[in-house]
Design a protein around this nucleic acid. Structure first.
Lengths: 159, 159
DNA sequence: ACGGTATTGAGATTGCGTCTCAATAAGCCA
DNA sequence: TGGCTTATTGAGACGCAATCTCAATACCGT
């Protein structure tokens, strides 16, 4: 993983807009790159503090938004709650199945759906910047054992 | 529009679960059916109060959720903000293009995407209850005249 | 190294959605 | 129909994520 390449994208984005490169910005950038799957802002803050980084909650929010601007991070709401942030590898867009019972999240990629989305945008003269497809329902495990929920805040099984 | 048919679905849903039929429930049901496009809970409350209905905010929320349960109303977040509620005509599922500039919302239907979604669910043994596809970006009008935004909180152009 | 100015931090603030609990009323039954 | 049980309502409190405020800090062009 050459995070260097992506960090450079971030720095470039900052410079291009005359924004400053600060220790906090680099720290947020590095931390979100270290994370796998979906994290919320407080998770990230906690992780950074555990690592000894001194940074405030507001700054984490602010700088995550900067990373979203340059497409290195995706920001969305999965279930219904808070925002989740996810490190976005260039050219690896995916969508989500979310189980309402156990919270498990499964990622999937569908080139077919992607293509149809592009068609729809073209038909409407619409210039897409972000596309979110999210299917919530009941996963295989929960259908089988409606009670025995696999560890509530679940594994982001990348199936 | 025979809202009668749909109102009956609601009443049936209530009875089936031993829940009571109240004036407030009927009022929320009728009001959301009267609305076109997407409204949030407070819009709906205001509309009802304007109409002389006496009802509390909490009750609006509670009863909207009841309507969501029986698939007469869809509840989701469009941009990033609050929940939006939308009267759902049976068998007319659609998805949304949302313009980040002017807020305009365009609905579209894609049977092809629907079919692919079903396939994906099947492949994962996933039992879907709600599917949301949302594409945000820049609409034709805003691309043409980046400044002249058509009436901020926009028309739900059903194209 | 200096100075102008963007950025940060700590805590206050906002605002949606939910919860609380006493008062009310729906609906079953005699 | 009237009485009784219990779900539902209303008013306001509450929780909580995200944003905002503004003085202190530190980035970066000169």
């Amino acid at each position: 993983m050459n995070n260097e390449r992506e960090k450079e994208i971030f720095l470039e984005h900052l410079r291009k807009r005359g924004r400053r490169v600060t220790a906090e910005r680099l720290a947020v950038c590095e931390e979100i790159f270290r994370q796998h799957g979906h994290v919320d802002a407080d998770d990230l803050l906690a992780a950074m503090q555990r690592r000894g980084v001194k940074i405030s909650r507001a700054t984490v929010y602010r700088n995550l938004d900067l990373l979203v601007e340059c497409d290195l991070v995706r920001k969305y709401r999965l279930g219904r709650d808070r925002y989740l942030y996810e490190h976005l590898h260039p050219g690896q867009r995916h969508d989500h199945l979310v189980c309402r019972e156990c919270g498990r999240v499964v990622e999937f990629v569908s080139p077919g759906i992607r293509a149809l989305q592009r068609e729809i945008c073209k038909a409407h003269g619409f210039d897409p910047s972000e596309q979110t497809l999210q299917i919530s329902g009941c996963c295989r495990a929960c259908k089988r054992d409606p009670d025995e929920r696999p560890a509530a805040e679940a594994v982001p099984a990348t199936a």
